[in-house]
């Protein structure tokens, strides 16, 4: 089984895990920091970097700079904007009617269907969704997986300056429901693009919507796959997390992983 993974900085944990564990099969990675390899050249099933700089970056990481999609049995997109932050972006500006929490700032109200519609559009507009679309168009006969950016680290519970939306959801007892909304919407969006959404494994989560500290400390930066992210970083997960996700990906492939026809 040969898999090709596309993604942004959140792919680093998978590369780290793959290099450490080497599960069965083969795996290649095509990555770019920031929003991901949105500008990659894709023609006749062949993929190349968008620029000399990107090519040099991949070479520096020891990753292939030219890929032939026909060689792979499955494709995956990691992160690239597919994130629970798209949910909190909305919840930071709006109060959802019917959710059992106060609205002390008198935020404009929306219904949960409206929240879901906004989240759906936001996810469909990410680089991740765009990559899925392009990959699906290039290879209709293999499964394409969409793997979200990990939820932020539980360390944000001790912070004040970032992740307020997540803290609020936990404080209000809405984290599990919000996470379920995200899961359902992301699954629908990915399905519409012809991909299988692979949610963050439950074993890596805490408080319903955060990543457990043990999976989100000492994460490696994509820039050189060596340097750890600073202690304040709450966004990235480590190799242990990557290993759990890789297992989930392999399991999904074993359990079928059939190509999904876009709706």
């Amino acid at each position: 089984m040969k898999i090709c993974v596309f993604g942004n900085s959140h792919t680093a944990c998978l590369i780290e895990a793959w290099r450490a564990v080497r599960l069965g099969g083969e795996m290649d990675f095509f990555v770019q920091a920031g929003t991901g390899p949105a500008g990659m050249q894709l023609a006749d099933g062949r993929i190349e970097p968008e620029s000399a700089r990107h090519r040099a970056f991949l070479e520096r990481l020891g990753l292939p700079v030219r890929l032939d999609l026909t060689h792979y049995d499955a494709l995956a997109v990691v992160g690239c904007g597919i994130s629970k932050f798209r949910l909190t972006d909305v919840l930071n500006c709006c109060h959802v009617l019917g959710w059992p929490c106060p609205n002390p700032s008198d935020l404009p109200v929306i219904t949960e269907p409206c929240l879901r519609a906004a989240l759906s559009d936001a996810l469909a507009g990410t680089t991740g969704a765009s990559l899925v679309r392009r990959l699906r168009a290039a290879r209709a006969d293999v499964p394409v997986f969409a793997i979200p950016q990990p939820a932020p680290s539980e360390r944000l519970l001790k912070m004040r300056c970032t992740g307020g939306g997540f803290r609020r959801l936990i404080r209000q007892g809405l984290a599990l429901h919000a996470a379920e909304v995200f899961r359902q919407v992301a699954r629908a969006v990915c399905s519409a693009e012809g991909a299988v959404f692979l949610p963050q494994p439950d074993a890596t989560m805490t408080h319903g919507i955060l990543t457990t500290g043990s999976f989100s400390t000492a994460a490696t930066r994509l820039v050189d796959l060596k340097t750890p992210h600073p202690d304040q970083d709450i966004l990235h997960a480590n190799g242990a997390y990557g290993a759990v996700v890789l297992e989930a990906l392999q399991a999904a492939l074993r359990q079928g992983g059939k190509p999904c026809i876009p709706r």
Binding site: R86, D89, V90, C93, C94, P108, I110, C114, L115, A117, A118, L119, S120, D121, A122, L123, A124, G125
Partner: peptide, 10 residues
Amino acid sequence: PTPPGMSGAT
């Protein structure tokens, strides 16, 4: 205002 991320059509 329009919720973040929501398309113009929606």
